[in-house]
Amino acid sequence: MLGSGIIKGLAVTAKNFVGSFHDPERLPTVEYPEKRLTLPEAYRSFPFLVFDGENAIDGLRCVACKMCENECPPQCIYIIPERDEKGRPVKKPKVFDIDLSVCMGCQICVEVCPFDSIKMDQVFEVAATNRFEGLIAHREMLAKSNTYYHQIRPTEAAEVDTRLAEEKRLAEEKAKAAAAAKAAAAAKAAAAPKPVATTAPASATAPAAAPASPAKPAVAAPSPSPSSSSSAAAPMAAAPKPPATTP
């Protein structure tokens, strides 16, 4: 009969009307500034730089290898490496800018970073009134501590720390072996990594050490269980090459 479909429809809306007063399933609105959803661990917004220790700038894991700058699809990263008095690069970024208005949060920089130094943040309220200044994040703004990284992504950060510790241990073993072989060279090598904070990879040795770690778990992947992390090997960073220094 004409109208039966309309009546069925009216019944559905009535059900939803009543349901919206008692059934959370039918009123899923979260009133945002007062209430917030807990973000899933995988949630990503914009990149930030991880530093170890106390000093934000000195502790940066970044060695200004420019790998992320080269791979960034919208080209929103800008890096100038630090140089010492003689003009040699010292494996620190002097300038590390990310234009957040251009960044599309694809996390390819995270995947390609061989030093676990750039990670995706979870801060999404980055609105600014000034498009030119307010949305270009500088080195100081980007640097966030490893503790913070542990807060936002506990699983992933723990994995990264384990891996870095492992790499460091291997590097040290290698350095010791080298020291035993060549006393003079060893003395020099031991003296080299001095200003770097405790858990940071010894920047000089990291590229050499990386191939030594056979199964490097996925950089960005919070792997479900440690057991599968070896099988779920890294897509990008399986074998990080020595940093390509592009001018």
Binding site: D97, V102, F132
Partner: peptide, 21 residues
């Protein structure tokens, strides 16, 4: 687009000689 990328910036500057901003 004032991206921090020099290539874009150089180009933009060439097109807008010495803009106020």
């Amino acid at each position: 687009e004032p991206t921090p990328h020099d290539a874009v910036l150089t180009k933009a500057k060439g097109h807008y000689p010495a803009p106020g901003s």
